[in-house]
Nucleic acid binder design. Sequence first.
DNA 1: ACTTTTGTTGACAACGTTGTCAATCAATGG
DNA 2: CCATTGATTGACAACGTTGTCAACAAAAGT
Lengths: 349, 349
Amino acid sequence: MKTPTIRDVAQRAKVSLKTVSRVINNEPSVRANTRERVQRAIETLGYLPDLSARSLRSATSYALGVVYDNPNAYYVISVQNGVLSACREQGFGLQIHPCDSSSPRLAEELRDLVRRSRLAGLVVAPPMSERMELVRYLAANKIPFVRILSAAEDPADGYPCVYVDDRDAAYEITEHLIQLGHQRIGFLWGGVSHRSSPERFKGYESALKDYGIPLDKKLVIPGDYSFDDGFRGARRLFALRDRPTAIFGSNDEIAAGVLAAAKSCGIDVPYELSIAGFEDSPFSKQSWPALTTAKQNTEEIARHAALRLIAELRPPGDAIAAAYAKNEGFSPQLVIRDSTARARLPAAD
Amino acid sequence: MKTPTIRDVAQRAKVSLKTVSRVINNEPSVRANTRERVQRAIETLGYLPDLSARSLRSATSYALGVVYDNPNAYYVISVQNGVLSACREQGFGLQIHPCDSSSPRLAEELRDLVRRSRLAGLVVAPPMSERMELVRYLAANKIPFVRILSAAEDPADGYPCVYVDDRDAAYEITEHLIQLGHQRIGFLWGGVSHRSSPERFKGYESALKDYGIPLDKKLVIPGDYSFDDGFRGARRLFALRDRPTAIFGSNDEIAAGVLAAAKSCGIDVPYELSIAGFEDSPFSKQSWPALTTAKQNTEEIARHAALRLIAELRPPGDAIAAAYAKNEGFSPQLVIRDSTARARLPAAD
DNA sequence: ACTTTTGTTGACAACGTTGTCAATCAATGG
DNA sequence: CCATTGATTGACAACGTTGTCAACAAAAGT
């Protein structure tokens, strides 16, 4: 009734340990006949390879780590699920590692994590993925990793990544608001520790420029990727003499804060104020009115990142190694819902 | 530059492998002098014990698994963080395992997971924790586990658990609504695969009874723990001739759906309709108006569950084993926010 | 026919750690 | 001073697997 080992399988199939090992690892040079016999023995015994023993013996290991520091539950779960889907497909385990991105010992912490648990590599989410000294440390310590980061194009810095074009999507959102007739569009920044924040601002800035709308600094408010900062920022904008007719919150949480602020001030959304978010978290669908936003397919992005990492681990020439050898870019898609509408005519003011 | 092993430490400290092992594991019978020498060697080399080798050699392992099947990101993250906090404190790793609770092969899947990864035990979240045949299977296969489940009292079925008194909290919420003067209170069910659903209903039912309010079956709507079912259920209630003045949604997502439905019908919350949720997800704070709800401290509950599991693994007499030897109950706390208010007087209708 | 190649298999060591047990040492009691 | 105890230490095997290498058999080339 003990859990069976490779030895039990070998005995039952009347072959050596090594042959069973070969069958398990799909190595060539096993006669079809023998292979089948071993397979049968494996099935009847319900044998499962022991991951500890495996990763102890072989240099290569069978688990990835995913590293994040993000209060946004939806984002984290999406990343986890995306990575997990790739891991399960490729026979890898997954170790999650929430951490404190501001910790000075983070680099060593990650190195130790990889060593202790013999991780094959790390998927690194923002904002850690954007700290170059951390990236260089990992590379210097020969720890395989893939970054998920915000960039308009492949950073081509020699380190593998999957990048998300926040700037382009922010441009589209701003453009959408402009095309609805809005001229005074407020912008609420996300946290500056995230590269996505300035990227989204750049998209906003450049759309205004392309449409010949001057940037009014009073309409741009710093803050964090949080509901509360959205609320506070919106209140500040409402207090302006010439209040904006639309507000672009750097993510859905901020936009939710704006929505709450609008309601608390009796401002009708979308007819008096259009609101756009960013991310397409479930929240944006479930608010009232539902938020116009940019849909980031985080799960798919994370899945791709994991496969990209696994590709790096494979010997060159391998099918996966080939399919995911290059850095890939993703563009969030504009999703128009009910929180944005045509600007009321100035006359009606 | 290779990662140091116990062997390197032994060499440097001029002791045998075994002595180093003893120091690492805090075993007695090492002279203070020797111990210190070894510690120094460990520090200077930056030695870290290899978890694979450890769990391969020793019968006991150093990782827990957490098993869940829940679309609610906030809930899942809270459970993960709670378990993780206990794991880090006690030197355990953590393997997450989202799964499909309706899969007929789930039991074997979990057993295989535990074997392959040499997990010390499982923290099982609802609804898996409530399927007795699964529980019995785990027990029969000598897989240590702790359940998180919904119950008014210790089930005392011999299997360890941490239980949450949903019934009592649902009673309090209903009582709160009644005390605000509501007599017609709608109830939207959660998914029936979760034990918490009937528990919450029982709380609702029994509060009505205690206050002498007859249960009107037309006000009770079946559904799932989802925004959409909240929306649809609310619409059905609004269509009634004698519409309720308050609605109790079985969780915050349902309540959010009710809120959206109310807004889409131009019903003012809370003055025309009070809404209460359950769970205290961030959402409930961030909607407008903020939701009255029952605060489940999921993170603390999960943390306790993990410690309860670790206690089961320890030899009796151990400090943790003693502190967490018994099943513990938790009661969600009523949190009154802005979505509930005094019922308007019938006269004002 | 005999050598060479190719394919298939197994014996053995090794990965880094801990369990077992015996050896050594210091201290205690007679 | 010697026997006895108890604390400290180390040699060795073992956990379950894979890498190395050699043995062997079958197929191919001469």
